[in-house]
Amino acid sequence: MTGHDVIFVLIGLLTASAAILTVTSKNLVHAALFLAVTLAGIAGVFLTLAADFLALVQLLVYVGAVAVLFLFGLMLTRAPIGREALDNQNRGLAIAVSGGLFVLLSTLIIGAVSSGALGETSVAEVTGPRIEDIGIATFAEWVLPFEVLSMLLLAALIGAIVLARPESGESGEEAEVTRIEMGDAPASEGPQPLPDGSAPELTSGKRSEGSS
């Protein structure tokens, strides 16, 4: 076992434990942060496997953008400030789903390797593809799937914008506005009772209420 292997195992353990914590964490923001650690750990794994471009993409896209967007969305919408826990009691389900996914993926990978679909390559021979190779592969050999994927992403983007826009009713007004809960809303628009508890002098609003 070389030093390289030791580092690989350490990063792997870190990534795995962060992944477990992502699922078990009671606090939503903590879960998102552990997810960021997991993603960064995967980037580290890529790096030890000499896939430096992939590692950097992982870092830039997943840690720098996806995880940040997760956190951003959480903080903007429902993250409790500070230590408070926010848990929807779905941990059991989450563990079951991720465990199932793990079993599925690992059987697939093991089956693929044992059937010889990935070819005979030993760990020692692995050297990352040069960036030019990746570029040529992406834009020359695999340009059609690449363009299809970008079209798909564009469609998803437009779809998201359409969904996120406030629906406009026939009157052109915004359909529904969610009110942020900020303590008790005023009980009624009518006149407040006087300090001694008696009703104040009749106002127009009061009168109409009584008449109806």
Binding site: L59, G64, A65, V68, L71, F72, G82
Partner: peptide, 19 residues
């Protein structure tokens, strides 16, 4: 560019954790 993009995480964490 990838390294600088990670710094945001620290800022977001600090902002949230300060309560």
């Amino acid at each position: 560019l990838a390294a600088t993009s990670v710094s945001v995480l620290g800022v977001l964490m600090g902002g949230w954790a300060s309560a």
